[in-house]
Design a protein around this nucleic acid. Structure first.
Length: 642
RNA sequence: GCUCAUAUAGCUCAGCGGUAGAGCACUUGCUUGGUAAGUAAGAGGUCACCGGUUCAAGUCCGGUUAUGAGCUCCA
């Protein structure tokens, strides 16, 4: 038979030969490193016989694919076997690879805590030291079920029973023991190919990812080709932890949380300064883009939420308040607004709107409360009270496309000024839980997809992830260390206007419901500030930084010169502070550097006598003495307000 | 909401049955120092909350609340 290699060369080799034979035929080096083979785009075990002509490539341990296979074997063969050894009562579920590593899910009556991982790691190393060969046997459905019935592995049985496959279930064995695992493969031919690994955490995970199912124990690990690469990865994880906004928020004294108000931010002065800067920035941009800012009540009668559909579809996440004061005649049930849209419709509904009024764009920095499940809260990233940079565009169907284009332009210019150059677009379609007829949804989905298509932006589709009132575009930006954050959203709504009796009078004098577009760029200020802090490691751009300049005196003899500079900076609108504490300059530099102040101006006798300042910027270890006037000019210029 | 873990001074943490400790921060004194921690002293705690075991509980047990890592969710 003829096997075509990646370089298009063809090897003639006896039918029934395997990947290892081929590798040997090509060269001893390749044979030594070979762990699997790719046959017509499908990864197979190295010793699987090949019976007909094919395009093949040998997968070596040094390739990306080889690393994946190594992680897979480490999970399914080594970790799983170690679990069975240490927890003999356990039942194995699944063990896939994930980014940088792998996990394994299993059921046990014992509690597995982070301290248990050490013992499991030790057992894994013992297994690896055996350098066992891994072999595979094919089983019929019946025989495979029997093996796992005898082994008391109910999850493996379930996997087989749920499979469409009739026969040829692959079971992998190691040559020195009883362990058997069902797996689609491929696996390393031998455990000696395993590199360096570390078990990282343990948690619960639902069987098949469904919260109605029982919870299994999940052990996570990371694995790499070498000890150096493992160390490098662990170091990167450590570096990422250093930019955690919760840690930096504390160090920089920006905000805190406390038990009495879980999921709600107490903004400290510096944190609130960042917030105000960001809000002012967005406000100016909205104004320039024909949005009109409005404000709507925090607490609204349940009747409105019933009419809007929130009471029905969103009740679980709403904070409810009851007014039953002693003297109140009626008992009202209110809800804290979880969204601003019904409020905006109330404003729209005041007075009769003509087609000439459209598109009409209301914006609100609306504070919303949503009762998020306790386990989901996470610093500023997931809170129960947050302010959206919310807006609603009331328009005609004809205007959808142009509004989509305008919004994407608007959003990308904001992202760029905030330091995010790249973003992806996701089109989310109708979810199971929704309002409105299928016909309306067809129309909305078609309109949105047509708009994004005609505008030529690349996008991908996320089925079933739309809002309950309409399909949406989500905008996902990428931060400095490559993480994705879903921030902006553009949601088409053909339902709410009708439900809340919003209409406009058309050219023909007839009433029509406007299309409503719910849109946000940052999403929530709280979360976005968290993203900014992590993106910049706390070293925010000059215009956003809460303290922009600190003037630090070296000796008290120059305090008056410091006051003079402080006043000049303040007059120019710079957020400046004077540090005349009885401390050494190195102490002051350290203090303000850890607080991430962008510019430190150090003043000593030299500076005072020469009318200069020593300017030191965050991230630099040098200071430069320059003329005071030049420094002021430079700083003021730097304070670009977007 | 689920699994596991955690909760001690403003912060970071040690103590794990015999009535509370360190470093930093804070206050005061000395020091006026040239770019990431000068020095000494002082002050600071119902050991998250509720209950139980015990002669005795930060310390052991149960519950509650909050937080963390995941899972599920994020309309």
């Amino acid at each position: 038979m003829k096997l075509t290699l990646p370089d298009n060369s063809i090897r003639d080799i006896e039918a029934g030969s395997c990947g290892f034979d081929l590798a040997k035929d090509i060269g001893p080096g390749l044979a030594k490193d070979a762990v699997a083979i790719d046959i017509n785009g499908e990864q197979r075990d190295l010793f699987d016989p090949i019976n007909e002509d094919a395009n093949v490539s040998i997968i070596t341990i040094n390739s990306e694919e080889g690393l994946e296979i190594m992680r897979h074997t480490l999970a399914a063969q080594v970790l799983a076997r170690a679990i069975k050894t240490i927890y003999p009562d356990s039942q194995l579920a699944i063990g896939p690879t994930i980014k940088d590593g792998f996990y394994y899910d299993f059921k046990t009556n014992k509690t597995v805590s982070i301290d248990s991982l050490h013992d499991i790691e030790k057992e894994m190393k013992k297994i690896i030291d055996s350098k066992s060969n891994i072999t595979k046997k094919l089983f019929s459905r019946k025989d495979a079920l029997k093996v796992f019935n005898d082994n008391k592995e109910p999850y493996k049985k379930l996997i087989i029973e749920d499979s469409d496959q009739k026969n040829d279930f692959q079971l992998y064995f190691q040559d020195d023991n009883q362990f058997a695992d069902l797996c689609r493969g491929p696996h390393l031919p031998n455990l000696s190919f395993i590199g360096s690994f570390k078990l990282t955490r343990v948690s619960g995970a639902y069987w098949k990812g469904d919260s109605n199912n029982e919870m299994l124990t999940r052990i996570y690990g990371t694995a790499w080709a070498s000890e150096q690469e493992l160390k490098k990865h662990l170091l990167e994880v450590e570096e990422a932890e250093k930019r955690d906004h919760r840690k930096l928020g504390k160090e920089m004294d920006l905000f805190h949380f406390q038990d009495e108000a879980p999921g709600m931010v107490f903004w400290h002065p510096d944190g609130w300064t960042i917030y105000r800067n960001l809000r002012n920035f967005v406000r100016r941009r909205l104004q320039a883009s024909d949005y009109i800012e409005v404000n709507t009540p925090q607490v609204i009668d349940r009747k409105l939420w019933e009419a809007s559909g929130h009471w029905d579809k969103y009740r679980e996440n709403m904070y409810i308040t009851e007014i039953d004061e002693e003297h109140a005649n009626e008992k009202r049930v209110n809800a804290l607004k979880p969204m601003n849209c019904p409020g905006h419709v109330q404003i729209y509904n005041q007075g009769i709107k003509s087609y000439k009024d459209l598109p009409l764009k209301y914006a609100e920095f609306g504070l919303c409360h949503r009762y998020e499940p306790s386990g989901t809260m996470h610093g500023l990233m997931r809170v129960r009270a947050f302010t959206q940079d919310d807006g609603h565009i009331f328009c005609t169907e004809d205007q959808i496309e142009s509004e989509t284009g305008l919004f994407i332009e608007f959003l990308s210019s904001l992202y760029e000024d905030l330091g995010f150059k790249e973003f992806d677009i996701k089109l989310s379609t109708r979810p199971e839980m929704r309002v409105g007829s299928d016909k309306t949804w067809d129309k909305a989905e078609e309109a949105l997809e047509a708009a994004i298509k005609n505008l030529g932006y690349p996008y991908r589709i996320d089925e079933g992830d739309g809002a309950f009132y309409g399909p949406k575009l989500d905008f996902v930006l990428t931060d400095a260390i490559g993480r994705d954050w879903q921030c902006g959203t553009f949601q088409l709504d053909f339902n709410l206007a009708e439900r809340l009796d919003a209409y406009y009078v058309g050219e023909d004098g007839k009433k029509y419901n406007p299309v409503m577009i719910h849109r946000a760029v940052l999403g929530s200020f709280e979360r976005f500030i968290g993203i900014l802090i992590e993106n910049y490691s706390g070293k925010l751009p000059f215009w956003l930084a809460p303290k922009q300049v600190v003037i630090a005196t070296i000796t008290s003899e120059v305090d008056d010169y410091g006051v003079e500079i402080l006043n000049k900076l303040k007059d120019a609108g710079i957020r400046a502070e004077l540090d005349i504490r009885n401390e050494k300059i190195s102490y002051k530099v350290r203090d303000h550097s850890t607080k991430k102040v962008p510019i430190i101006l150090a003043l000593g006798k030299n500076e005072k006598n020469n009318e200069t300042v020593s300017i030191r910027r965050i991230g630099s270890n040098d200071s430069i003495e320059i003329d005071l006037k030049t420094a002021l000019k430079e700083i003021i210029q730097e304070n670009t307000i977007y």
